[in-house]
Amino acid sequence: MVIPYILFTIIFWVYPLIWGILIAFKKWNIISPVTEFVGLDNFIKILHDPLFWISFKNTLIFMVVFVPLSIICSLMVALLLNRIKLLRSFFSLGYLMSYVSAGVAYSIVFRLLFSGDGLINSWLGKVGITIPWFSSPKLAMVSIAFIVVWKFLGYYSLIFLAGLQSIPSTIYESAEIAGASKWMIFRRITVPLLNPSFTIILIFAVILSFNIFTEPYMITGGGPLDSTQTFMMQIYYQTFTALHAGYGSSFAITVAIISFTFVFIVKKTIEKDMIYS
């Protein structure tokens, strides 16, 4: 009964994984039958590829906006949801609505809604401001991060809410009796006991930051001035437009290693916090 799974995994998982690693050390343009072993050249080339560093920078900008904003907002929503009984499932489902939206669909919507002469700017124009959401190189990546916050707000809130509900109310009661202030209770009880939720959300958020593709592809095409180029856009471009399969593959491996490192750092730091509190 497990044979189909094993066969499938060998063909579509193990074999591609190994193949991908092997071609990362080769120079190959997909079309020609000739492949040339180049050792670590591809990896060295990546370090000298300005677009690699631009994508890295853009990913960091995305993370710096997306991670704190989505965590703060979704924690707030979860805390609010945790205070109510009536209509709780109505609200949590309402917040989840953005999560089920398809990437291409909401990219179209936000691109039009926030375009230079779009509805949001025509409203803002009434008070004398217009914001170049996607046309300013400084702002474009930040705007994309906002959109992704919109998408995942409800999803992360639900994870936080599940975490909040697993905290026994007796802990809160005894803290109140001991005279702890609300802020103290939040800082010393809620946050530490939500540690598993924080960990899983941070890991999701970091992995997601390295996988951004549809939004910049659909909204900005990587521009203006490469300000929304991402790793995935580069891998797509190198492999499927420029046909540098070997280079694309080594790019993918480099990105995977970087994202592993980030996830590892997140895990380590949070585990440390756990011990202190």
């Binding site: 579509f12 074999y15 591609p16 193949w19 991908g20 399969a245 993918a252």
Partner: peptide, 18 residues
């Protein structure tokens, strides 16, 4: 398996499809 990011499979799976 669940630890491996999708980015690692994109290119070789495409080659496999070819």
């Amino acid at each position: 398996q669940m630890l491996f990011p999708i980015v690692l499979f994109l290119i070789p799976r495409f080659l496999l499809m070819i």
